[in-house]
Write a protein that binds this DNA or RNA. Structure first.
Length: 440
DNA sequence: GGGCAAATACTG
DNA sequence: CAGTAT
DNA sequence: GCCC
């Protein structure tokens, strides 16, 4: 009884934090609430769009206070950028209908989830199934079957987050995101411990080759298909015979190194190198390492660095200058985008000679886009999908640049000025989640 | 059947 | 423009 | 592939 109760709560939490369409329960109940309280929300929105928060004020405030390198967390500056008197987050945090105990439970669980994301994560009771589905997901992905892979991914998350071990198809049916086809697969896994299709594919030349090739940076489904049809089967084939773009050459040259995860400590060091270099060139720059690093991961796939400055608009060549300097000290070894005239750089770096090469992105945003950029590039991907879906249901649209109201399918309104991540959550009527809590 | 997020930048 | 990446 |  208790178990089942908890299961249901977890289920709800998961859906809510994932933002799947069908989190019907979580999300739509919130939508309902939103409509009920449309008036409050309107007033909040007008408050936000009023002069109380403006980009210029934002610039002034942040630049004057703490334009300093912040790796571990910029929560200090985030907090500092909120004036307590103007916004009382607690008064506007999303409250579910108090009259309905069930909904209250959702809310409570929601909080629990936010406090304990690790707990939810560490106990995958369905490893025996998910490990196999993960193969299917990867295979689908490298064949370019985007949405099929998407569905597998969703099923995997559902299974991982389930509070019970799936011992029968009936168990699996309860989980949202598991349809007929995956049910069949689960049945076979439960009966035989494996999946014939996976066995087949793992020794299938086409599948193996697609997986191999699709991990080359710059090669997507179309390119991989072409290479395969041209008869290439190994990385050596590609190096010797394939016609490669410059990006693919780099991707191939560092194929193994770029596969490796980056220890958190190294990301910290890389961040420091970039930050020190950048700030030496442009004092007052704000530099934050985002991505999985900011979410607290111990291992990262790449390094994602965001910068902003109050004078961004007058310093269009800012990023190129920083790039050139980083190149000069042999930190950046290869460029994946052109370095002139850019505010979004992609490249390859090496912390020190002999160390593995790493993928690095450095992006410069104008001050007024800082909050959205931070949110976006901190992710996770799932979290982003979730919050955007939510935004859409509130007739808003969230991008790396801005949070805007949409009046219709095509008509978009003015951006809602937001100067911190907290404000984005606030405007969307969501409880703030720290970066670590977005690692979902 | 259509949606599954959304928007931008770069390459060739 | 298609393809790729973020 | 799943869901509506």
């Amino acid at each position: 009884m208790v178990l089942e109760y908890e299961v249901e709560e977890r289920e709800i939490v998961r859906r809510g934090s994932e933002g799947d369409t069908k989190e019907a329960f979580d999300f739509s109940s919130k939508v309902t609430f939103y409509k009920k309280n449309a008036k409050e929300t309107q007033s909040l929105l007008s408050q936000v769009s009023s002069s109380q928060i403006t980009p210029s004020q934002d610039c002034k405030e942040i630049v004057e206070s703490q334009c300093k390198y912040s790796l571990e967390s910029d929560s200090d500056s985030e907090n500092a950028s909120i004036s307590p008197g103007k916004y009382d987050i607690s008064s506007y945090s999303f409250q579910l209908d108090p009259g309905q105990s069930k909904k209250q439970n959702i809310k409570r669980t929601y909080f629990a989830c936010q406090k304990n994301p690790e707990q939810l994560k560490t106990s995958n009771l369905n490893e025996h199934i998910t490990s196999i589905l993960e193969v299917l997901e990867k295979n689908s992905h490298s064949q370019g079957e985007k949405w099929r892979a998407f569905a597998y991914g969703k099923a995997i998350r559902v299974l991982k987050n389930a509070k019970f071990k799936v011992n029968s198809v009936e168990d699996a049916k309860k989980l949202h995101g598991i349809g007929l086809k995956i049910q069949e697969k689960i049945q076979e896994i439960l009966e035989t411990g494996q999946l014939r299709r996976v066995q087949l594919e793992s020794s299938d030349e086409r599948t193996v080759t697609f997986n191999l090739f699709s991990q080359v940076f710059g090669a997507g489904p179309a390119t991989v298909t072409k290479w395969y049809s041209q008869g290439f089967r190994t990385l050596e084939d590609l190096k010797q015979k394939a016609k490669l773009t410059y990006q693919q050459e780099i991707g191939l040259a560092y194929y193994e190194e770029l596969q490796q995860k980056i220890p958190r400590e190294e990301v910290t060091q890389i961040g420091k190198i970039v930050s020190d270099t950048a700030i030496a060139i442009v004092p007052g720059l704000k530099v934050v390492v985002c991505g999985s690093y900011r979410r607290g991961r111990q291992e990262c796939g790449d390094v994602d660095i965001l910068m902003t400055h109050k004078k961004t608009n007058c310093l269009t060549d800012l990023l190129p200058r920083i790039i050139q300097e980083l190149e000069k000290v042999h930190f950046l070894t290869d460029h994946l985008t052109k370095i002139e005239n850019t505010d979004k750089y992609m490249g390859v770096c090496q912390r020190a000679p002999g160390m593995p090469h790493r993928r690095i992105d450095i992006k410069l945003f104008p001050r007024h886009e800082w909050a959205c950029a931070l949110l976006y590039f901190t992710g996770s991907g799932h979290f982003n999908r979730s919050i955007r879906l939510w935004a859409r249901k509130l007739s808003m649209s969230l991008s790396e640049h801005a949070l805007v109201r949409r009046y219709s399918e095509t008509e978009k309104g003015e951006p809602v000025p937001v100067k911190s991540e907290q404000e984005i959550f606030q405007v969307l009527g969501l409880k703030y989640q720290a970066p670590e809590q977005r690692d979902i």
